[in-house]
């Protein structure tokens, strides 16, 4: 895996977002460059939930931020609602920001501890002149009701008075305030308890249906992704490994890295809990990624070909793409 290619693009669809050859590099010293994202392409069709899955350091969060031009990617193109964001002026880009929102991983620290909830939610509305105080108040109540919080109880409280799950509800309400087209959710449930996780995942589904959203869902947990996504993109060290609908990805895993991810999900059943297909070690440094396929140093099926030639994404069955020289049968 860890390859390039555009075989999985769908130019005929109603595409909200088209990302091509996106590369993000950070210069950290005179001749040290961290290659966080290297030539990633994908598209997003209206109403879809694309899950981006991989370990820490695979570039999934950087990818999410680069789409929002935070900061601008090193090279490549990001086309949102048929407009190119990478070459857009600051002023024009700002005009587009309300329609693309983000939900962050740590629900508590992503809310200003000094502001009451009503102010947290009013801020975007005021900045964008969405009506007078009465209209804004009505909108805040609507948002809080939408995420199942009682406006009367929570309006005047501050973030530290809430649990992690409640803070994440407030973050979701805030991201909905400006009626966005697309929301990028960066590990929205990984800081939460299992029981609360399920509530937030259900809520995201509800909001998606109710407001007609298109979502990018970034996570390291394939089981979480399975429940919410319509398409999954597995990333490793800044490259795409495998793209498929979630059922297909799980039942018919083609990439050795995906198999390791699937095998690592803890199973709550003592008779089946034995971990299979465990990969050892941690990803190599993104400053000096391996040649050819970037996964080859941890891959059980690696050959010389993998070191010499980078695998390209190719379709193995309808809608299922893999970048591997030796895919699993």
């Amino acid at each position: 895996m860890a390859g390039s290619g555009k075989a999985h693009m769908r130019p005929e669809g109603d595409r909200v977002l088209v990302v091509e050859d996106l590369t993000v590099e950070f210069k950290i010293a005179k001749d040290k460059v961290v290659k966080a994202v290297s030539g990633v392409s994908f598209d997003l069709i209206r109403g879809e939930t694309l899950a981006v899955v991989g370990e820490s350091g695979c570039g999934k969060s950087t990818l999410g931020k680069a789409i929002l031009q935070l900061p601008k990617p090193t090279s490549g193109s990001v086309n949102f609602l048929s407009e190119e964001l990478t070459t857009m002026s600051k002023h024009d880009l700002r005009e587009r920001r309300p329609s693309m929102q983000m939900i962050f991983q740590d629900p508590v620290s992503s809310l200003d501890p000094r502001l009451p909830v009503s102010e947290v939610l009013a801020e975007p509305l005021k900045v964008w002149n969405k009506g007078n105080q009465v209209e804004i108040d009505a909108k805040i109540d609507e948002l809080l009701n939408a995420v199942n919080l009682d406006p009367k109880v929570v309006r005047d409280r501050r973030s530290y008075e809430f649990s992690g799950g409640q803070c994440q509800r407030i973050s979701i309400a805030r991201s909905l305030a400006l009626d966005p087209t697309m929301i990028i959710c960066d590990e929205p449930v990984s800081a939460l308890d299992v029981s609360v996780q399920a509530q937030i995942l259900n809520l995201l589904q509800d909001m998606k249906d109710r407001y007609g959203l298109t979502l990018i869902f970034i996570s390291h947990d394939l089981a979480v992704v399975k429940a919410v996504s319509t398409r999954v993109m597995v990333m490793y060290l800044g490259k795409v490994c495998e793209v498929a609908p979630p059922d297909e990805l799980y039942l018919n895993t083609k990439h050795h890295y995906t198999k390791a991810l699937v095998g690592s999900v803890p199973i709550p059943d003592p008779d089946r809990a034995v971990t299979k297909g465990l990969i050892m070690g941690e990803p190599p440094s993104p400053m000096n990624p391996p040649s050819g396929c970037r996964f080859r140093t941890r891959c059980p099926a690696a050959t010389e070909l993998c070191a010499n030639e980078e695998p390209q994404l190719r379709e193995v069955s309808l809608g299922h793409f893999v970048a591997c020289h030796h895919p699993i049968d």
């Binding site: 029981s195 399920a198 995942l201 259900n202 947990d221 394939l222 089981a223 996504s229 199973i267 709550p268």
Partner: peptide
């Protein structure tokens, strides 16, 4: 409430 790989896509988690 644990999300599992067997969970059908798009289903609501208990």
């Amino acid at each position: 409430s644990i999300p599992r790989l067997e969970t059908p896509t798009g289903s609501r988690l208990p």
